[in-house]
Nucleic acid binder design. Sequence first.
DNA 1: CTGATTATGGATCATTCAGTCCATATTCAG
DNA 2: CTGAATATGGACTGAATGATCCATAATCAG
Lengths: 199, 199
Amino acid sequence: MSHATSSKSLPGNKAPGPGRPRNFDEAAALQTAMCVFWQKGFEATSLDDLTAAMGLSRSSFYGAFGDKQTLFLRAVEHYSKNAIRTLKEIAEATDGDAVEAMMEAISDPHGGSRGCLLVNCITELAPHDTRVAELGRRHLESIEEIFAKALDPQDPGAVRDRARAYTSLAIGTLALRKAGIPADRIADTLKQAKTVLSP
Amino acid sequence: MSHATSSKSLPGNKAPGPGRPRNFDEAAALQTAMCVFWQKGFEATSLDDLTAAMGLSRSSFYGAFGDKQTLFLRAVEHYSKNAIRTLKEIAEATDGDAVEAMMEAISDPHGGSRGCLLVNCITELAPHDTRVAELGRRHLESIEEIFAKALDPQDPGAVRDRARAYTSLAIGTLALRKAGIPADRIADTLKQAKTVLSP
DNA sequence: CTGATTATGGATCATTCAGTCCATATTCAG
DNA sequence: CTGAATATGGACTGAATGATCCATAATCAG
């Protein structure tokens, strides 16, 4: 068979050991899988969906990622770490109102309607999968912590409840948006809530 | 075959026309289906799950409800009407703080972890099914309206944003609860948010 | 009773699903 | 070069899926 296999190794793959080297970028494939799960959810995503999007044969898929469930957990964990890191950066980089910037980033009223992958997972799977519930809980608690530090850098512990209220509010807007409530109304809601929730 | 079929008609079935009468209560079957969808979501619920829970053969199922999708929409609509009616009753019956009572009823921090069926549907299906999105939007707007009337019976239109903030907050707590955040923390959050959000 | 009409049970169907297998290809160590 | 080790393509598998079909049962109108 012809093949034009790339002569050398691939972008981000570690130094090859003995056997034949990977013909794909594992990190990129994981990222792609994450997007598919994000758009369709776990149950509605088939292996064909995944392998097609990732550009892998089934052999490569199972060889590299184990199975659908395992890949899913990796993808979700990857998403969570990324999202939390980004949110921290936003909270720290803002010279103005960090809370406002965070609310905007989470609810993202002008973005698509995929929502937050972790929230999607919690809703779909957490009641029946303790590992997902655990990942979800940690994710939400991380967000809460960032809010708390933004609200009171000196004593974050004193504003836990308020931080959790902001978290809940931001998460709630994701459902509104998915249901088709116009972005400007959601933005107004956040503005309103922000001014009213200020101490 | 023996059979012991109930000699007469069934509980809530309308007067029989020509053919053989239904051997089950359609309303009860719908209610049961609703519970199954509520617990497992749409994709994860199989026809065997449904027929087993409803106590129907496939013939009866398809004869009475069309198909899985159609039944699902009926079940969701049924849930929504019920939930909105109940919420209205709670808001009107409370002599104390109606908003607080509504928040408690929606977030239900001491209930199970199935959340709100409509929110589950929105998260799982709304981005890919406009009918679900429409049902979800109407549901959320109904909640918002009840909040608005509770906040200011004279001029509900003037407090739309605040009503939507309460809605979002209540919906958000459902995710927290599903993720395993302790009920008492959620209750504290609501109390805190309520006092702070008061005008 | 007879015939029309509707419901029921259960077999059946084509499709899709997640996951396996094997022959072949590509690399490294020696 | 030889052989061990790993990756790849793609056919294949058994189970589960949503949905249909048909023979039979139960009812009503006449």
